[in-house]
Each structure stands twice: as C-alpha cells, then as structure tokens.
Design a protein around this nucleic acid. Sequence first.
DNA 1: GAATAAAACGGACCGTGGTCCGCTTAAGTT
DNA 2: AACTTAAGCGGACCACGGTCCGTTTTATTC
Lengths: 202, 202
Amino acid sequence: MQSEGLLRVTGDDGERTDAARNRRLLLDAAAEIVAACGAEKLTTDAVARRAGVGKGTVFRRFGSRAGLLHALADEAGRSFQQAFMAGPPPLGPGAPPLDRLIAFGEASIGRMLLDGQILRAAEQQGGPDPEHPTQQLVRLHLGMLLRELGVQDPELAAYQLAAFLNAGLLLHLQEHRGMSDARLAASWRVLVTGLAAARDTR
Amino acid sequence: MQSEGLLRVTGDDGERTDAARNRRLLLDAAAEIVAACGAEKLTTDAVARRAGVGKGTVFRRFGSRAGLLHALADEAGRSFQQAFMAGPPPLGPGAPPLDRLIAFGEASIGRMLLDGQILRAAEQQGGPDPEHPTQQLVRLHLGMLLRELGVQDPELAAYQLAAFLNAGLLLHLQEHRGMSDARLAASWRVLVTGLAAARDTR
DNA sequence: GAATAAAACGGACCGTGGTCCGCTTAAGTT
DNA sequence: AACTTAAGCGGACCACGGTCCGTTTTATTC
C-alpha cells in the first residue's frame, strides 16, 4: 500500500532494489579496477563485465564514464566534505575565515596524493563541469568564506580559487614539475591573503 | 648540395613541400568546418575528407584532434600574442607591470567572444595541457610581470592566474552564468591587485 | 496469486579518435 | 636521368564511449 498518484516511489531514494544493487556492484567493480590499473584504464566495458551487468546499465546508472568517475570521487571525498563543513577548526567552522581558506587549500592539495587520479580522470572526461554538485559545494564554501572576508564579488572569486584547486593542474604541478606540497600551499596562502588584502586596497 | 650528416633538412621548417601543402589544406578545411558547424562538429574524418587527404595525414601533421584545434587556435591568436609581446601599452611593453597584467586579463576575456569556441574545444580535448607552447608563453609572460611586481614565486602564481583565464571557464561564466565582461574584468583586477599587494603583506 | 505497468536490463550497434603498415613521392646523390 | 632513402601518404582497422530497443524484473493492485 503505497502510491503517489501514478508515481512509484519505492526504495530508499526511489530506486528499485535491483537498481541499487547494480549501482553498488558497479561502484565496487570500478574501485577495484582503478586500484589495480589506474583510473585511465577504467573502460565502461570492463567495469560492466567485472560487475556482471550489461553495459547499458552503466550508462543508465551514471549517465557516462565521467558520471561514474564522479560518483567514485564523491564517495572517496565524502569525508573531506564532512571535514570542511562540520569538522574541527581550522578546516571546519570556528576558525577565522582566512585561516579556514588557507586550511581548505592545504587540505585540497594534500588530498591529491590520495585520490587525485580519480579526480583528474573525472575532470578531464568531457571537459571540466563547473556545475557538478561537488564543484558547486566547493564554490559555495569558498564563496561564504570570501564573503566573510569582505572580498568583492565573492561568488566569482570562488570560481577563481576553485580553478586553481583542480586536480588536473595540481597533479601536473606535483608530478611533472616536481613542486612540493609546501610550495603549492605557500603560493595558495599568498593568493588568498592577497585577495583578503585587496578588500581595502581599492 | 645540402646535407647535415644524415639528416635531411629541406624546406622552410624541414617540412617537405607536400607536407606543408597538406597542413595548409587541413587548417583551411578545419577553419571552414568550424565556421560552418562549430568546433564541436569538427571530426577528424570530416576534415580529412574536406581537405582531400587521408585520415592518417591529419594525425601525422597534428598528432591528434586536440593538436589540430590548438594549431587553429594559435593561428587565430597570433595577433593577440603579438599585441601583448610587442604591441602598444598598456598591453604591450612600456606600461607598469600591474597595468599590463590588468590589460592582459581584459584582453583575454574579450578574446573569448571571438575564438573562444576553438580555444575551449582545444582545451577540453584530452584534458587541458599546461605544457602546450602557447600556454607556456602565456605563463612566461604572466610570470615576468609578476616578478616585476615582486610577487612571491611568480612562476607558480602564473599558473594560478592562467588557470582562471582558460576558455572553458570563462566561456561558461559568460554563457551559462550570464556574467558580463565588465564583471569578469573587475574580478580579475581585484585578483591581480591583491597579488601585488600581498608582496609586502607577509 | 494473477494481472499490470513502469522501471531496469543487456548487448548489439554506431560514430569517432587514434594506430598501423604497405605503397608512393619528394629530395638529395652520382 | 637513374638511384636511394627517408618522409609522407591513405585507408583499413581497432578500442572505447554512448545509444537503442526488445526482453525481463520489480513492485503494486485486485
């Protein structure tokens, strides 16, 4: 006994049980393949085969290879999200906004070593998508801190900062240019400090 | 009578005449297709067919679809390069570095309307490539100006600024977020001004 | 426990980027 | 002008992302 007019909202998220099961199977299979061969070797065929489902299912569940990678990255990054939204200062709430901004940058940089591969693969597939929920959340967070700092046009400034914190660039600087996390963090500090200072410069 | 040991450096750029001819044919064909249908419709098959050459030739000349698009973008952007390297101030040499930085950002933003489509297509294809000669030139220029300003780690700061000036982001902000060039330019001004101010803040 | 309809499934199929390799052609040599 | 050789050439071929549609499963109603 459960009906909303003609709609059919059954499971937890309105997702049929087999659908939910296959989502998990696919995510697990994908994580295994990435762990074993790297994110760039993750083909939609392979993940479908490994999960024991048809290829079409991959696309119905995740829309695209990029969607699958994003889902994977989001799972990996959920704890990070938790940390900057509700964790202890200075990353979480409680510290002054400038300190939180600095901590956010440092955490993002440090995170790259962990699951930068997935993040990068998710980004480049079909061009970076600034409208992805996770990206929006990041910008929302940055925008809030920038607003607290009194920065002009915090929304746009958030785009600027987020542009630098993307995995493709950060990983490139670390791997191909041999830049240390310390150096990246220092430069980030200068950038946000400058932005904060520009407030009263004009 | 022309030999360098075993090497064979014949034409202008060591490129055989037929090779040079096909490069031009391909670039022209590509430009026509882009003009007619947009950059995203540019397939390697189509450009080869239109130029009257085999598909392999596209890849030997340009390496990839991205390479072709980059070559196209470079041709379109040559005058811009000229302008900021040797043109009149404030974009070209002669003006104070901060003014030149601001002018550079404004010019980049304004340029997007013109050939942003091609630039974006070139970027997203296979992930942005920070090592592409044109990108390197841009960063070299930015780095020089930042150095003159006394910014810490100008090389890395150049990466940060360049990250914001990419076509994918700028076009997204213009098209999907309806941001005016003026607003983008203002935010750019704040960013570089802040960077310049951070010099003596620490 | 039928009946039913929406949702999910699978895998054949297609378009496109990129590779490969046997053939051709341009340039230098004698 | 004949010869040599590296560069260039073309298009068949392959891999992978993404679509489509006939079939199967799930949840609900009676």
